[in-house]
Design a protein around this nucleic acid. Structure first.
Lengths: 261, 261
DNA sequence: AAAATATGTGCTGAATAATGGAACAAATGA
DNA sequence: TCATTTGTTCCATTATTCAGCACATATTTT
């Protein structure tokens, strides 16, 4: 059957490296295991020979992905976790968030920001300029304090449990509206969590409002935020609510898109 | 060394499967990359032949670890992240927390619990029984509502940003002291975050107090909590503060030990 | 335009490298 | 005590991976 091989196989499946497949099978089996597993157990479970499993484990151990316990059992190490985390950290949010930002821009005409957390600040990793004559003006790669802009407050609200302590004593005042007491921040974060988006009423720059919503991974971990920044003078009645809803929706769509990548 | 075996080779290094090594090299290179990478680029970077890299990518793609973009570039998928996450989720906290629990037991004599989150509850995955004549009595694998026991409140406080909304309407009342309003819970969580440990003043079982502190990963993610449960009648003045400090210290030591595994 | 240099992908023969089974020592349980 | 079961080593066999080339597209340079 040199010519056709398989008549009912419409897609030619590429031959794949069995050693790599088996090695990853072993690794997955270990990561999915509650405790440590032995060679024989894995060999039965994966239907591989003992010597094969043993050898795969040796190389996985040499590479640091698994570790042998004193009683000859093997468990996955945190290196596997770290490698996985790198995916998330190096993810190009710009690509994923691009269309959502574009949507926000066309529907609001104001400046759109994509921000990630960096310590007690947010860093803007992408932006779309406002099309309005009166603009706000943060550059890409610029930073802003996390406690007083929309994107920052959205991110902060989602990780407030871990961040709260670090905020104490770091609530620098920028305008009259800046939140400078931890008590008020507690309340503001609770409100933000309830709404699902954050509002900055000119707390960083006078008369510049901004609104933000967080972007998160399948497990809820926050990786960034979308935000709209708009001079108060551009705001007609009802605009703020409309923009906030848009930002929230946009962030949700990015979050959703992240799930399937 | 009857004959000679290794004159200059002190450690015999086990031969390791090259395909698996190379495949993981490719995967690591992709996870560490800011954006997507092409076959040729990887081939140069890792000093492998193009056809070799191509094949490895094919199998990694077939297994779901990487994905080809429309323009023939490859990027790591969230599957890599998920596999890594499983390590953390299935990590045997018992092993790591064991000695800290033992320390807590000998220093307090009360019941020690190790808990992880499960939805709106905590599950006790390990315990050391009280040595006191009057005991509290939660079994291993037992559960308790997250909003009214020490371990649960400690975990909740650390992830309150993501959890707050889910708590609304789920604040079941168990005793007169149970927190049933979201407003009070907000305040209690803020206080807990400030202290670094949680206090349950008989909010789940009458006259049974419990104290808890969260255990977290290198990046701050919470994976569980240590707790001490003690009948009020056993508490002398000053005991509560002492126990709380112990619990906090114990949880910190487990957190620290987690870093290096 | 056209040539030149990239790129990713498909073959194929050659041989390397992974394989499975047997054999081993060391625990473990009957 | 023997009988299993464990992890580990070894080795001949061969199936598997590999490098190199060929080819089709892009992209860039001339």
């Amino acid at each position: 059957m040199n010519e056709q091989a398989e008549a009912a196989a419409p897609k030619k499946e590429p031959r794949l490296d069995s050693t790599l497949s088996k090695g990853l099978m072993v690794l997955e089996a270990l990561t999915a295991a509650k405790g440590a597993k032995g060679v024989s157990e894995l060999s039965r479970e994966l239907e591989l020979t003992k010597s094969n499993v043993f050898r795969l484990l040796q190389t996985l151990a040499a590479l640091g992905y698994v570790q042998a316990t004193e009683d000859k059992l093997y468990r996955a190490t945190l290196k596997t976790w770290q490698v996985g985390r790198a995916v998330v950290e190096n993810f190009n949010l710009r690509d994923v968030a691009g269309s959502a930002m574009q949507m926000l821009s066309t529907k609001t005409g104001e400046a759109i920001y994509l921000a990630v957390q960096d310590g007690l600040n947010v860093v803007y990793i992408d932006k779309i300029d406002s099309t309005q004559p009166i603009r706000s003006w943060n550059p890409v790669a610029g930073t802003a304090p996390i406690h007083c802009v929309g994107t920052g407050k959205a991110i902060l609200a989602a990780s407030y449990g871990r961040m709260r302590e670090r905020m104490i004593g770091n609530l620098t005042k920028f305008t009259d509206r800046t939140i400078t007491s931890i008590k008020f921040l507690d309340e503001e974060m609770a409100a933000t969590q309830g709404r699902g988006y954050a509002i900055d009423t000119g707390e960083f720059r006078d008369r510049i409002r901004s609104f933000g919503a967080a972007i998160s991974l399948p497990d809820g971990e926050v990786v960034g935020a979308l935000g709209v920044s708009v001079p108060e003078i551009n705001l007609e009645p009802g605009d703020q609510e409309r923009i906030c809803d848009l930002v929230k929706m946009a962030a949700e769509s990015v979050t959703h898109r992240l799930q399937q990548i």
